[in-house]
């Protein structure tokens, strides 16, 4: 019954580059799966999909998807995507990058893009540390967690990503773990169909770095943790939706915000029309 075959999703992938560079148990492959699943089901032409990323493990993801892909400098994926989208609004621009890239070095760009309600979808894969450089702590590392640069436990508070994005007026905000594969796929599809700035946080295991320092021996045990602690609550009070790994607080997931207001592209189109008519 078991035989070698061609994976049905291979046409959306650069399959000659497989196997990918990610470690066993990494959640990034699952995010890639959800993304290609979503674009395969949507009626947006494949040529209009563009993937942009910054630097990091997650940022290698666009290199594996068979769409136009851009691997840019550290933290600057969002302004790069902004440029692409404004010039050619037909494109479905998706930024898939890591928490360190989007919220540490690029924190400024993402808050401004959310404020502008720029028509892009941002998928932030949050693995609570900098995986590629060897597991340093970042803005999302939970309090008390150990990483290679917090050998005595993290003494900083962490960002509550959906709360920040919601406070900036983003059009769509959701959070899933890499265990919620189907919900994630659906969420990506929904976000692509929506106008305005969409943000999806994906909590993902990082077994060799974050996991190793925090007694999660492999990806499975981290998945197990998500399985036991995640609670679906679409109407959650976001100010309480912090993540910690003490097990005292539930891991709140769901689609938190869906709001409709004119996006930057629509407003700009209107402006150009007005300016061009002016004598």
């Amino acid at each position: 019954m078991i035989e070698e075959a061609i994976h049905p999703k291979d046409i959306y992938l650069r399959s000659d580059r497989f196997p990918h560079i990610w470690c066993p148990g990494c959640g990034l492959g699952i995010v890639l799966k959800s993304y290609v699943d979503a674009i395969s089901k949507l009626d947006i032409p494949l040529d209009h999909h563009v993937l942009v990323s910054g630097i990091g493990c997650t940022a290698r993801l666009p290199g594996y998807a068979n769409v136009d892909s851009y691997h840019t400098t550290h933290g600057r994926a969002i302004p790069f995507a902004t440029g692409l989208k404004i010039v050619n609004p037909e494109l479905q621009v998706t930024v898939i990058s890591g928490d360190g890239d989007l919220f540490n070095i690029g924190g400024n760009h993402i808050i401004h893009a959310a404020r502008r309600n720029m028509d892009i979808l941002v998928v932030c894969v949050n693995n609570f540390n900098y995986g590629m450089t060897g597991g340093q702590h970042g803005a999302t590392t939970p309090e008390g967690a150990r990483t290679s640069t917090t050998p005595y436990g993290n003494i900083e508070h962490s960002f509550n990503l959906p709360y920040i994005m919601a406070s900036l007026g983003a059009s769509y905000v959701a959070r899933w773990t890499s265990l919620h594969v189907r919900q994630l796929t659906k969420s990506i599809m929904k976000a692509m169909k929506m106008k305005g700035f969409s943000f999806i946080e994906v909590i993902s295991p990082c077994p060799p770095n974050f996991g190793k320092y925090n007694k999660f021996n492999d990806g499975l045990s981290q998945m197990e943790f998500f399985y036991e602690n995640s609670v679906l609550d679409n109407n959650a009070d976001l100010s309480e939706a912090y993540i910690d790994f003490s097990g005292k607080r539930p891991l709140i997931v769901g689609e938190f915000v869906q709001r409709i207001r004119p996006s930057y592209i629509e407003l700009e189109r209107d402006l150009i029309k007005r300016a061009m008519e002016e004598p």
């Binding site: 999703k9 990034l28 492959g29 799966k33």
Partner: peptide, 9 residues
């Protein structure tokens, strides 16, 4: 859906 490596379908 959950295989990160596109190794199973």
């Amino acid at each position: 859906a959950i295989c990160p490596d596109f190794a199973i379908f």
